[in-house]
Design a protein around this nucleic acid. Structure first.
Ligand SMILES: [Zn+2]
Length: 315
DNA sequence: CGTATTTGACCCGCGC
DNA sequence: GCGCGGGTCAAATACG
């Protein structure tokens, strides 16, 4: 998968956030309306519901496939981007202007999701160190700086989403909001409130140019287990609130709707739950969370990138 | 009534 | 020392 697309620096991964973001524009609404008046007949209702569920299952299957592809492309683009970044900074470490402004100036049209094992901010330290030593080092210097781990997530969202809250599965308590110099939209400060002594903070701010993108900056590591996600030991994780599971294996992530679980209420409420935008959002979040939290994924990612760097040394 | 959010005050590092 | 920009605190307020 990763051996393909190396050329496109176009970073145009308009992920499935689109189809998932606006779930209420499609025949879903019609379908819902269709089922309600059918409750006059009991037997027909059951049959209809069965058909309904089947259709939804198909839809979910379809969506699953889409998500799969989207994750694939995201992975590929991410690999490409990271590879290019590493390449760039190991090729021309003397070229100043790419280290310090990396925080404010790179907000052109960059859409990335960085995971919490390696970060862009770390590149600052690497570049500085590189400047004083050799230019082959950047691949292996991972000192535990006083700096906590920082990761950024560029999330595409609806501009009308005023909440400015990125639901990532954790519980955050807002403790501040400031207006920044060169950005009309304010910046919100959050602290993890699940554990009393969790040092994790995050800053969320809408992008200055593209108001449909919000940037979440995470800082630190959680020193507690995930609130609603215990573990994904052998690749499968069960969510406490969602009647579904996300599993990751070598062939790719898979979402399984657990219809046998008792969490589903009888009647049409199951359909409603599935159709709910909240459900879909949580689903995506759960999936992304699981993915980024999967050591196998991150390890494979690192390995692939590292291999690529070694394979294509800077000119 | 307990808890989360809001919002101006406060603090602190940095450049002048 | 002072002003500025960014980060945090905490009193007031909103919310359930
Ligand atoms: Zn935490």
């Amino acid at each position: 998968m990763e051996s393909a697309r190396m050329d496109p620096p176009s970073l145009s991964l308009d992920l499935g956030v689109g189809p998932l973001r606006l779930p209420e524009h499609t025949p879903i609404g019609q379908r819902k309306l269709q089922t309600n008046p059918m409750h006059v007949e009991r037997s027909a209702s059951f049959k209809d519901e069965a058909e309904d569920l089947e259709a939804k299952l198909n839809r979910m299957s379809e969506e699953n496939k889409k998500l799969n592809e989207m994750l694939g492309s995201m992975y590929a683009d991410y690999s490409t981007l990271r590879s290019q970044l590493f390449d760039l900074m190991s090729t021309s470490p003397k070229e100043k202007g790419l280290v310090s402004p990396s925080r404010k100036r790179k907000s052109e049209s960059l859409e990335t999701i960085s995971f919490d094992d390696m970060t862009y901010e770390r590149t600052d330290g690497i570049s500085n160190r590189v400047e004083s030593t050799s230019r082959e080092d950047p691949c292996k210097r991972f000192r535990e700086d006083p700096k906590p781990k920082i990761s950024k997530a560029y999330v595409k969202t609806d501009p009308s989403d005023t909440t400015l809250v990125v639901k990532d599965g954790y519980q955050w308590r807002k403790y501040g909001q400031k207006v920044t110099r060169d950005n009309p939209s304010p910046r919100a400060y959050f602290r993890c409130s699940f554990a009393p002594s969790c040092p994790v903070k995050k800053k969320v701010q809408r992008s200055a140019e593209d108001t449909s993108i919000i940037v979440a900056t995470y800082e630190g590591e959680h020193n507690h287990v995930h609130p609603s996600q215990t573990e994904l030991a052998h690749g499968s994780c069960h969510n406490g609130s969602l009647p579904c599971s996300v599993s990751i294996n070598s062939s790719g992530p898979t979402i399984t709707l657990d219809l046998t679980q008792q969490g589903l209420s009888p009647g049409g409420s199951a359909s409603r739950e599935i159709e709910s935008p909240e459900f879909q959002r949580l689903l995506v979040e759960q999936m992304a969370s699981s993915l980024t939290r999967d050591p196998n994924f991150t390890a494979a990612l690192a390995t692939a990138i590292f291999g690529r760097i070694l394979q294509h040394p800077p000119a």
